[in-house]
Design a protein around this nucleic acid. Sequence first.
DNA 1: ACCTGAACACCGTTCAAGT
DNA 2: ACCTGAACACCGTTCAAGT
Lengths: 196, 196
Amino acid sequence: MPRHSDPALLQRRRGQILQAAHQCFRERGFRLTTIDDVCVEARVSPGAFYRYFSSKADVIAAIALAARAEADAVIERLPNSDSLLEGLDRLAHAYLVDDSKSLLAEVWSEATYDPVLAKALQARERISLSLVTAAIERAQAQGAIYPSMAPGDAAETLLASLEGLALRRARRGEPDCAQAMRWFRALAVHILKPKR
Amino acid sequence: MPRHSDPALLQRRRGQILQAAHQCFRERGFRLTTIDDVCVEARVSPGAFYRYFSSKADVIAAIALAARAEADAVIERLPNSDSLLEGLDRLAHAYLVDDSKSLLAEVWSEATYDPVLAKALQARERISLSLVTAAIERAQAQGAIYPSMAPGDAAETLLASLEGLALRRARRGEPDCAQAMRWFRALAVHILKPKR
DNA sequence: ACCTGAACACCGTTCAAGT
DNA sequence: ACCTGAACACCGTTCAAGT
């Protein structure tokens, strides 16, 4: 990327482009969105775009990581939430609610193609996994749950299942997330075995 | 598509192109594979290609549905297998084994972008789901399992979880599927509660 | 330094011309 | 009917020229 003298301008332009990109991606998805679409929306020229992002994959990665950050925020509060099951409900909601507004399914798809994005996501997922594991261990230590698997295995299984449920829901274009949430809750209950 | 007088030639050419496409897709994935790559591999001109397939999405869909058919074949044998858990193990193996040889993760990604493919997959998934449901009902009627959910819910949950495990494994580039299989088996046991 | 917009490269698709 | 390969359209990226 080229030299930038004014950090404030750099941040403003990047924000401007990211916001435009986000809007376009919401409407048409990563693939069908054109650099030109983003440029028109952001009111910059293609040349300007490439001063602030090195490629289309670069903006996609930025948006994708931001989309994940929303789910991550819920996970980060997990180890301190009063009830683990309630926290997991909120997590499921974050993954499932969409109205095709969240981009998680798109993000996972993109990661299949873009190894750079896949690697960045992996780093975050390792953190998510350890946070969920910690939350399970804590609830177990408090006698709130009697998990039927090792905490790490339970965390991986729960996150994978949630991902699968979210993906299938997105593929079906299912507008309502209530059923998927019930499925996930049932799963969580069977794996974690909460008291009463 | 244009008129075809000789059905045998039609089939031969389509097969020739599909085989080439399959090879290319294995090597570079759907996205990075060029129509020209396929044409070179199949030894036909671009013009000839478009006599037998209407678009790149068309070949991808053909290959994608064939990839799913492998998993479907395992599912079809499920209701008659001796042990449900054993059958599910074979199913998990079909989803997870890869060595990045199966294209399931690619297929799911593509379905996020291609609504036509998504719809075709959905039709097959409805069938898969009812077959798994039937297998669970049968095992339950025989007293081999004591499922903790309604059979339909158990089937959906198991398939979604398997999909999530497969996707995460693909994204990590994890070469070994043994751990993912253990996770899935543990899940199946907790949901289905087999006797002894 | 920062920006514009035309030019370039690549790739999916079409089509005029040949057998 | 069947095929070829050049031409076209589209889109990601670069770059010469302007302020």
